[in-house]
Design a binder for these strands. Structure first.
Lengths: 349, 349
DNA sequence: GTACTTGATGATAGCGATACCATTACTTCA
DNA sequence: TGAAGTAATGGTATCGCTATCATCAAGTAC
């Protein structure tokens, strides 16, 4: 079996308490015993049991990070940023992927409570996640929301400005001359979706463009196939859009697939803009015009807020950090074709 | 404070043991007490303390997953696959990102040992990770290697066929007519780098093409900037390559950047192939010719091997699973220009 | 009626650490 | 000289749970 603190104590000829003092770098230990203990630790390859420690200290130096889709480059970077800050502060990260599934989210939150993580970073599935946040609060487990707010909840939050970002993107399309602009959205129990729809609507209104409900397609932020299907439906409208605003990068990927299937060229036949960059794709070929959000900073800032709170040097109730996005104009949106022909359907891909 | 099993027992008017039996679904409890306990659990919002459980059961239902770069789409998918299988089996995953830093890897391995995870999936930084594997073995912590083997180590392993894959990619370039083919590699204390260099060399030899050492540039598998710099150096050679084989997707991104900087068009002025797909980029614009590896399957299979071992229904010592890759021919490699002009240097980007 | 199951329940003893207090041996200073 | 502080060290209780064994009532067999 693995060595315990008592094995070390026996080998070093001291008490368990002295070993504990040595491995925790406390004073009040003679140099000689310290050396003997260190030798015994090395000889046995002793590693303190984190479970036992956590049980009595009521601290585990562990942070749970719960995200809806780790394969989304946005969240990948969030996680990397969070992990990095945590590591530097001597914490480690338990990563939980919910796949936007509420039941999985419930399970993960319960696990975080059970394993006594010291805090949680969570990008909740939707407003229906509210009960889980309540469970965290009730159990006094500090947490910080990332990317998405929850109606009626007031706590630490790091988010982008979705309303403004959406306006910028749609204004950009309008500025290029587009008037028939569609949006690929997701269910509006997600705050970012709500906000981006609002930004979209505000931009159209400000430009005096009539809102057409049929141009807002509800899709998914994690399954490109659904965005593809939604796009195909939009393209089948009697008056198809000349440009599409996808609520995020994943949806944009689906739009591009749909366009390719229909033999439409982006940006000539269809303009495309979206939230969130796809780092590797952008470097490979700077094509997509996006509202880039500083994903990694979402993670670092959120983790920092959490660690501050754990350190106890925070008094405010709900701190909100809004990180600015940046419009990066690349090639996926241009002026619409001067004479709009009905798109040739079902052309070979 | 949070409710303990004794609080529940008191409220239900039973002993702690009876509560334990109920929450663990054991028999030997009368229906009436079971109901009373369940009511008390619900009323108090009781969640069993995982640390205390783990301490006595010597199981935590937790698996550590250690990868060199979570932002690499390959590893992102590995993690997603692993997490998915783990979740279904009632395990959760602690994600550790080493950034290919040996010290961070050491720290994470120690943490896994300290927190008594039940097993570990690890894509080691390099052969220099061997001591950490020895520590795992010594402490009887089961683990499975992913993607990379370690010289002299014999245990469970899930990997691709890097030699064959590299041959396929380089053969593809040769088949297109390329003779001067460079490779962006990384230090050869990583098994995949070794194997891919070997596949590259074998392909050239088989085609009777002379090996030029200066055409193998050592770079990085996680920093595209380094691959970019390496590519610029290759392009500055007296006789620059007509095509480049990048050892992975990240390196390929750097190659593309370099080409763009030099005003070279891919594939017309420079062919490019690499290992590992970039899912979102491929969907957005099917451009890169790659040897795609089933990344998510790496994760699911590795986790399955590990869980099998934990369940005790495995006898073999070192099981190796080799997952086949698939050449996906897209647009980044074509026949070289019939008349090879010396590449115009320092042209505007 | 005795002996032996069987089921339901609880008391007790840890798991491997650390918090907290007690003890010992010296100093230090009025 | 004696009160009092201080450094080094160890003993004991405890974190919250479960393994194990003991207990007791009720049923079963002979």
């Amino acid at each position: 079996m693995r060595a315990t603190i008592r094995d070390v104590a026996r080998l070093a000829g001291v008490s368990a308490m002295t070993v504990s003092r040595v491995i925790n770098g406390q004073p009040r230990v003679s140099d000689e015993k310290r050396r003997r203990v260190e030798a015994a630790v090395a000889e046995l390859g002793y590693i303190p049991n984190g479970l036992a420690r956590g049980l009595i200290r009521r601290k585990t130096k562990t942070i749970g990070v719960i995200v809806p889709d780790i394969a989304n480059p946005f969240f990948t970077l969030v996680v990397r940023g969070a992990e990095d800050v945590a590591w530097r502060a001597g914490y480690h990260v338990i990563l939980c992927n919910t796949q936007t599934d509420l039941e999985r989210e419930r399970g993960h939150v319960d696990d975080m409570l059970a394993f006594r993580v010291d805090g949680v970073l969570i990008a909740p599935v939707s407003d229906r996640s509210a009960p889980f946040l309540r469970a965290l609060t009730k159990n006094q487990l500090p947490f910080v929301l990332i990317d998405r707010s929850i109606t009626g909840f007031h706590g630490d939050l790091v988010q982008g400005d979705s309303v403004a970002g959406a306006r910028v993107l749609v204004d950009h399309l309008i500025g290029l001359g587009h008037r028939r602009i569609a949006m690929i959205s997701e269910p509006t129990d997600v705050s970012t979706a709500r906000d981006r729809v609002r930004g979209y609507q505000e931009a159209l209104e400000a430009a005096g463009i009539e809102l057409r409900p049929e141009l807002i397609a509800e899709s998914s932020a994690i399954h490109p196939e659904m965005a593809r299907d939604a796009t195909l439906r939009l393209l089948d409208l009697p008056e198809p859009p000349t440009a599409i605003f996808a609520l995020n990068n994943i949806a944009a990927v689906g739009v591009a697939e749909a366009a390719r299937e229909r033999g439409l060229t982006i940006p000539d036949d269809l303009g495309l803009v979206c939230f969130d960059d796809i780092e590797h794709a952008a470097r490979l070929d700077p094509f997509l015009t996006v509202l880039a959000q500083p994903a990694e900073t979402f993670g670092t800032v959120a983790m920092q807020l959490l660690l501050d709170r754990l350190a106890g040097n925070v008094s405010e109730r709900g701190r909100t950090v809004v990180l600015p996005g940046e419009l990066i104009v690349r090639a996926s949106a241009a002026a619409p074709a001067p004479v709009r022909l009905s798109a040739s359907r079902r052309s070979a891909s």
